[in-house]
Write a protein that binds this DNA or RNA. Structure first.
Lengths: 338, 338
DNA sequence: TTGAAAGCGCTAACAC
DNA sequence: GTGTTAGCGCTTTCAA
């Protein structure tokens, strides 16, 4: 039942309704004054034919594109879908549409995706992180498009940044753990050359321990695979290697959850014998046997804020925002921290 | 440091390099024969200026858009990001770019998103499910664009469908549970008016039990909230209400995982006293205390296959595919089914 | 191998 | 309230 090869144009609707193309265009966009009679005719003809406007032509003519590029490292980490949720909730019914690009944490891919998206001339760019290749920073800066870098504020934004300080987050958690009297502390996380935010948390954490005169008792890093399973394995390995640990700080909640499950099954008293903490505040934690200590990364809030900035900027080029908008995450001690 | 308001055009590169716009265009697209000398000049000028081609103009002129619309219900359910992964892996370096739209399981929103995406004249549409509003089906059919409906084959596709039969999946699991000698069987799942695939599994499951002369011993449905926590709560509730249950079939792995954690904590012997099974085969299961019985929904495979069809079709309009491509999921009994 | 002209389908700007 | 004209920035086509 494949019909017409040629998609319908404004002209088809114009002819079918006996109204000029320009007026048809006005009706379909709700612009300018059009008499009710004409409007009816146009709408009827348009619907009857099954006309779908060509936004490509529209965008070229009006020099306006209702797209917002959202560039994130991954979809597999629940954190990013949640940021995206925040973005979407604000953009919904604003006339702007988010379009997502994935970088897999690879700078080359980021550059490619960015170039690809900018070539569609979006109304704004929301991009994760502050670390980009020189080239990426250059084309962003030269694009003349509002850019919001999200999730992180430890660095120099191209334009505007919305996020938390991961260094401070790591430090804060370190201080809390030390304050609770722990001495034999380990860190488990992802391999970090690519994940700058995890790295910054690690740095802040180490720093806080150092300040208290405590040296990291053990550490281990992974990449790939089921995070829950990895958390389990790594926890086992590290506890066998360093049995006197009294706290493990995980770079994300999923491996933390795996660690928690392992400790409980191994009959360890959590947090009596060993305390645990993760990072992100993912929803999943609510279903675990114990609520893992964590720190909310303000994901939805970041997404919302970023979208609001783009929205305001695309409505009025002159609006000014602070260069950095820093949100402050709190520790949620749950049941795994004393 | 905001520079030029006007983005660069081919003309700027043409002037900067002393080569005609047409030839610049050829160089930038690697089309046609261009002398090495000219190519060098153009590339140098383009890079120096930081030119980013305008795909909107290009698409309008060439009547070709390298975008593939991927329309899915949600990002919060890991299933869809995984399908998306499959799509991306095939499209990568093919010149086609996936663009994602989210429907939140709402038909009206699906229609809106679809209309929005079709107005960009993508090279193909990949859309979840076979149930769409009449209007949505009509504009899809009239678009003249290759359409692949994914995840499900129980129904009539607009164009091509790739997926599994959820009715058969539910039936198969029901038969396996009955064959293992279970008699007091419950179903826990999402509220289903919107989730057609969950509904079909439920129907197939009920059918299989009925055929064996077994009536569902209990059932409960939820919506919203942390799936893991919900699975836990619902399992508790249903076991208190119907203590003699010997099997619970969950409509997805996350609530199944919650149920499993609850049962283990309650000291129940799994699967001795009570068997459990979920659906999807999510990676997370690997980190649980016991491997939950499940059924792989072939997510990545579906995504890959769908992308291949779009790719083939966009390269050669005449290629024909079967109307339905059905994949066959297998039961993975794990440690929670006897 | 390169260039010139025409036009993709729509909308801004201006007439009527 | 409605129509006309002139492009938007690129690629197709054809000529050189």
């Amino acid at each position: 039942m494949k019909r017409s090869v040629r998609p319908l144009t404004l002209r088809d609707v114009s002819e079918a309704s006996g109204v000029s193309e320009m007026t048809v265009s006005r009706v379909l966009r709700n612009r300018g004054d059009v008499s009710d009679a004409t409007r009816e005719k146009v709408l009827a003809a348009s619907k009857r034919l099954g006309y779908v406007p060509n936004k490509i032509a529209g965008a070229l003519a009006s020099q306006r594109v209702n797209l917002v590029a959202v560039i994130i490292p991954s979809m597999k980490n629940m954190v990013f879908p949640e940021v995206l949720s925040g973005v979407t909730s604000v953009l919904e019914d604003s006339g702007l549409q988010p379009v997502v690009g994935i970088t897999d944490y690879l700078p080359e891919k980021e550059e490619k995706v960015l170039y690809e998206m900018l070539s569609w001339r979006p109304s704004g760019v929301i991009i994760a992180g502050l670390e980009h290749s020189d080239n990426a920073r250059a084309i962003l800066a030269a694009s003349g498009i509002p850019v919001v870098e999200i999730m992180d504020v430890d660095g120099e934004p191209v334009d505007t940044a919305v996020g938390i300080s991961h260094r401070a987050a790591g430090r804060k958690m370190g201080e809390a753990i030390v304050a609770a009297g722990h001495k034999r502390i380990a860190f488990l996380g992802t391999k970090m050359p690519l994940d700058h935010r995890a790295r910054k948390r690690f740095e802040g954490f180490t720093q806080a321990l150092a300040k208290a005169g405590i040296e990291m008792a053990d550490q281990e890093f992974y990449s790939g695979g089921s995070a829950l399973a990895k958390g389990r394995e790594m926890t086992k390995a590290v506890l066998e290697r360093t049995p006197d640990l009294d706290f493990i700080y995980y770079s994300n909640d999923m491996i933390g959850a795996g660690g928690l499950l392992y400790c409980l099954e191994a009959g360890l008293n959590v947090p009596g014998q060993i305390g645990l903490a993760g990072f992100n505040g993912v929803e999943l934690l609510q279903g675990l046997p114990k609520m893992l200590a964590t720190m909310d990364a303000c994901r939805a809030e970041i997404g919302r804020k970023a979208a609001e900035i783009i929205l305001a900027r695309s409505a009025d080029e002159a609006v000014k925002f602070d260069e950095k908008i820093e949100l402050t995450p709190r520790i949620a001690p749950g049941d795994t921290m004393r």
